[in-house]
Amino acid sequence: MIKLIIAIALFITTLVSAQGQFEQGMGKAFGLWKEGKNQEASDLFERIASAEKNSWLPNYYVALINSTSAFQTNDKEKINTLLTKAQANLDIEMAKNPNNPELLVMQAMIHTGWIAFDPMTYGMTLSGKVAELYAKAEAIAPENPRVVFCKAEFAIGGAKWTGANVKELCKDVERSIGLFATFKAETPFSPKWGLDRANEALKNCK
């Protein structure tokens, strides 16, 4: 009986210690990212992901950092490296949970990165996939502000080719801003980004 109690106590201690290390690591990675040290933050998130297999968040943030970085450069080789990295890490989590709306939005963003990089090559092959991803994410989580905003943002970007009603899409952008105000993140490290982009998009709408 005493051995059993000791074993349980050791298990709980180990679990609490691991959780503490995860939280410390995630906090440090976010700090590096906030300082603009994207590569260092990405590397740390990746190390956390390799140690913490049960959380989808570290690989998600590797994908987010690298995909958003791809939109900030015109260097073709760098864009290719960043988007390939983002996809590789996202694939790990998509294989575990293909119905996570945040991961679906992330996949759509990576595809959008390729479209922006080379619209002639990727526009026809990936635009439909992006629309499908957002439709699936919306069916799963219609009140998720990133789903609503990113879906509208992508449609606005393609409106000159698709003939979509931008006025209606701008209403969706405005609706997403309201959803950001009420959205409850599952954990302290769950995705919260998007409000600043939505506000900027709404300004452009007007």
Rank of each mutant, 00 (worst) to 15 (best):
N66I: 06
N66W: 07
E35C: 00
L82A: 09
T73H: 10
G36S: 02
T81C: 01
L82M: 08
E52Y: 15
A41V: 09
D75N: 15
N89E: 10
N80S: 14
D75T: 12
S69T: 01
N66V: 05
T68F: 10
T73Q: 08
T84V: 04
T84K: 14
L32R: 11
P58L: 05
E40R: 01
A86C: 13
E40K: 04
E40F: 01
Q72E: 14
Q39E: 14
T68M: 04
N74W: 13
R47A: 03
G31L: 02
T81M: 14
Y60W: 02
L83W: 05
I65R: 10
K34P: 00
K78F: 11
I79S: 05
L44M: 10
F45Y: 06
N74F: 13
K78Q: 14
L82W: 11
L82Q: 13
W56D: 13
I48L: 04
N80M: 08
E46S: 01
W56K: 05
A41H: 06
A70P: 14
N59E: 07
K53C: 02
E77H: 04
E52K: 12
E46D: 02
L64S: 06
A88D: 03
F30D: 09
L82N: 10
A51L: 08
Q87R: 14
T73M: 09
K76V: 14
A49M: 05
R47F: 01
R47M: 01
N38R: 02
I79L: 03
L57R: 15
N59P: 01
T73L: 10
Y61F: 09
T81V: 07
G36W: 03
E77V: 09
K37E: 15
L44I: 04
A86L: 11
Y60I: 06
A51H: 03
A63I: 02
S55L: 04
E77G: 15
F45R: 02
F30M: 12
L44F: 04
N54D: 15
E40D: 14
I48C: 02
L64G: 01
T84H: 03
P58E: 05
N38H: 07
L83V: 08
T81K: 15
E46K: 00
